[in-house]
């Protein structure tokens, strides 16, 4: 710092006086004036919030009217469609009485023939078996099977 003083002799010679002044009793009145400004500021904040609502009001109104129109149009359509779907389901519904009536119509022989008609007529050659086994089973599994048997 001393070195700086040596290097700035003209600046160091100057008196460190405050060259600025204020009006009389400026600091005595300041807090009272600030209070007035602050009160005004407090009122501005809710007004600003109201302004945002006022700005958004038309958009909110349009959105609400679209929602009402949608609901008004949608409700009758929904009711009409659900009624139609209900009617069509009545037509296709298969009651238990209908099922029993259908079962009574089938004779015993047809039922037995359906049950026994499983693997009859299907024959496998040795080659088919060999190719199936080689495609689906590993050598290790075959070896383990042979050992178990």
């Amino acid at each position: 710092m001393d070195e700086l003083k040596k290097n700035t002799p003209r600046l160091s010679k100057l008196k460190k006086e405050n060259p600025f002044g204020t009006p009389d009793k400026y600091f005595d009145d300041f807090s009272a004036r600030l209070k007035i400004k602050l009160e005004a500021e407090k009122k501005i904040i809710p007004i600003k919030q109201n302004l945002i609502i006022r700005f958004l009001k038309p958009a909110i109104g349009i959105a609400a009217s679209f929602a009402i129109i949608f609901l008004l149009a949608n409700l009758p359509i929904k009711n009409f469609l659900s009624q139609k779907v209900a009617n069509s389901s009545v037509e296709t519904e298969f009651s238990e009485a209908d099922y029993l009536r259908a079962m009574e119509g089938i004779d015993e022989n047809s039922v037995y023939s359906l049950i026994e008609e499983t693997d009859e007529g299907i024959e496998f050659s040795d080659e088919d078996l060999l190719s199936y086994a080689s495609a689906n089973t590993s050598e290790y599994e075959l070896f383990m099977d042979l050992n178990n048997n």
């Binding site: 600025f20 400026y26 600091f27 300041f30 004036r33």
Partner: peptide, 28 residues
């Protein structure tokens, strides 16, 4: 703090009127 802040602001903006405005804005 009003006096200390006022002089700090005044040395930056130099005019009293501006310093007064800025001091009020600072406290707000």
């Amino acid at each position: 703090y009003q006096e200390r802040l006022y002089w700090h602001i005044r040395k930056i903006v130099l005019s009293h009127e501006d310093a007064d405005d800025i001091l009020q804005n600072t406290f707000i």
